[in-house]
Design a binder for these strands. Structure first.
Length: 254
DNA sequence: ATGGCTTTATGCTAAAGA
């Protein structure tokens, strides 16, 4: 079973890329982040053979989960803050698998309410992932975590040391998720430096491979045991009018 | 190098992203 994640930075702007990539890659599930709109082009993806559950938002955020088999929506709200109106969370059940699509807040600039929102959001995610673990509901959490886990996941770790994506406080909260028993699936298969999923649009970052690894899959032990592969597909980032993120693909066996 | 691009919006400059 192939499960993919991709921050498309506007589904409207990336519609053609997404269609072409789906047709070429044929994942069973695709979890999209940063739709950047209230509407979602359902018809296009239904015609391609995918069921869609999504939660949009005007201008910002937005997540969608596409599947070739039926999707049941568990919740589109991350527990812990009823006043949170940002569309960043989609928890679904697909064939008995709990799949959670997240767009974790960026958090910059540090020291603002954006940063405290990020940290609080990570605490809420921790609580949810703990509840699922304690209730023996194995989950796969995938998406744009906006977290650089380690120095080898960043082209300039010193320069990024006080950024909300890499500062110690953020990384500690990411490690706390792992220490619940979840695994950063990519690192099961690849120990190399400079394996990035995002490259800034500004001049030279993509050709110079100045990137970040911030799009992740965290797997509960039951799924970690079944991991077959986890790869970054750099292809889409090299296209004209690309998203600044590229897809990551998880393969899981029976 | 001080975001050097890219996207969206009760839009034509500002805000957000990472």
């Amino acid at each position: 079973m192939k499960i993919a994640i991709w921050n498309v930075n506007s589904i409207k702007a990336r519609l053609e890329h997404a269609q072409n990539w789906l047709a070429a890659t044929q994942p069973d599930v695709l979890m999209l982040q940063e739709l950047k709109g209230l509407e979602f082009p359902l018809d296009v993806f239904k015609a391609a053979g995918y069921e869609v559950v999504y939660k949009g938002q005007k201008a910002y955020n937005g997540v969608a989960t596409l599947s070739r088999t039926p999707i049941a929506l568990i919740t589109d709200q991350l527990a812990g803050d009823d006043a949170d109106e940002q569309s960043r969370y989609l928890e679904t059940d697909i064939n008995g698998m709990r799949l959670i699509n997240i767009y974790l807040p960026n958090g910059n600039p540090v020291g603002t309410e954006k940063y405290s929102y990020k940290l609080a959001w990570m605490d809420r995610l921790y609580q949810r992932m703990k509840v699922l673990r304690d209730q023996d509901i194995p989950a796969i959490v995938g998406g744009d975590f906006n977290i650089i886990p380690e120095a080898r996941d960043c082209y300039d770790p010193v320069g990024w040391s006080d950024d909300a994506l890499f500062r110690l406080e953020s990384r500690q909260k990411f490690r706390a998720l792992l220490n619940l028993g979840y695994t950063d699936a990519f690192r099961v298969f690849n120990q190399q430096d400079a394996q990035y999923s995002f490259w800034d649009y500004t001049a030279g970052c993509w050709p110079a491979n100045k990137g970040l690894r911030i799009d992740h899959f965290l797997t509960a032990p039951r799924y970690t045991d079944r991991l077959v592969d986890c790869v970054i597909d750099k292809g889409p980032r090299g296209l004209e009018k690309a998203s600044d993120h590229t897809p990551v693909i998880l393969t899981i066996g029976a």
